Computed example of a mutant assay.
Amino acid sequence: MNICVFCASSLKIDQKYLQLAADVGAELAHRGHTLVSGGATVSCMGAVAAATRANGGRTIGVIPQVLVDIEIADTDSDELIVTEGMRERKAAMDARADAFLVLPGGIGTLEELFEIWTARTIGIHDRPLVILDPWGLYAPLRQLIDDMYEAGFTRAVVYDAISWTTTAEEAFAHLEATPKRVRPSVEELGEATG
């Protein structure tokens, strides 16, 4: 499987997040999967790619030209795709992915998560989407989704479209499971896009 990993590119994070990314990369390689990532060498993005390769795995990096220009492109990638901008980058990552794994990250990671989550919720794709959150960084997000559900802004299909995990083993079990097709009702489609 090609597993797209969304994760941090910030340089000011705790070492535990870098270790998590490295552990995910190693596990991904040991299970015979290919990594699709944002194609940079920094922070968790660099750690997951380096660990994947160090353990015999293949990596596909997708990076916009603006980041190549500041010399953070992962030129060691087995395949490095340079895009015009961020929207093209996300589209290229999406097109190459069989599943999505979200690690702790910042607003860029959240943007990627919400785009893939929304697409799965409205039935554009049925690929697995998993959050790996050992330390509860995304707990407020999960609470927000619960509050939105209680207030009527979303429907139960939003829960069916994602798996929340706390260990790499649990995350990979969800990624490797046969995906369940999300088939929202017409009412849910209208509310999800409105």
Rank of each mutant, 00 (worst) to 15 (best):
P140I: 10
E187C: 05
A47T: 01
D76W: 03
R183I: 15
A95D: 06
C7D: 04
A22I: 05
L18P: 00
D146I: 08
K12P: 04
E169T: 15
R181D: 06
A139T: 15
A156C: 04
R142W: 15
D23R: 13
G38I: 06
Y149H: 15
P140K: 04
L144W: 15
R120L: 05
E88M: 06
I63K: 02
E115N: 05
P140H: 03
I131W: 02
E170S: 12
D78P: 12
T165L: 01
D74N: 13
D146W: 11
R53Q: 15
L67W: 06
K12V: 05
M45D: 04
A91R: 13
K90W: 01
G25C: 11
D69N: 15
A49W: 11
G46W: 04
A192M: 14
E169A: 14
A54C: 09
D160M: 03
H125W: 05
R155H: 12
D94Q: 11
E150N: 10
K180V: 09
A92P: 01
W164T: 05
S43W: 11
T167H: 05
I145M: 13
Y149F: 14
L113S: 12
V186T: 14
A21C: 00
V82L: 00
D133E: 12
G46K: 04
T41S: 10
A177V: 05
T166C: 10
D146N: 13
V36C: 02
V102H: 09
P134N: 00
G39F: 00
G57E: 09
F100N: 05
F6K: 04
V5M: 08
S43C: 09
R58G: 06
T34W: 05
L132K: 13
A171I: 02
A119P: 12
L110D: 03
V68Y: 06
P64D: 00
V186I: 14
D160I: 08
L20D: 10
L103W: 03
C4S: 06
T154H: 09
V48H: 09
R87D: 11
L175M: 04
G25Y: 07
S185R: 01
M148W: 15
W135M: 06
T83C: 10
I72L: 07
A8D: 03
C44Q: 13
R53S: 11
E84A: 15
I122D: 08
E27M: 06
A49I: 09
T59M: 12
E188W: 08
I145W: 08
I145R: 05
M1H: 06
R183G: 02
L110R: 03
V186D: 13
S163G: 03
A139E: 15
G85R: 10
I3H: 02
R53M: 14
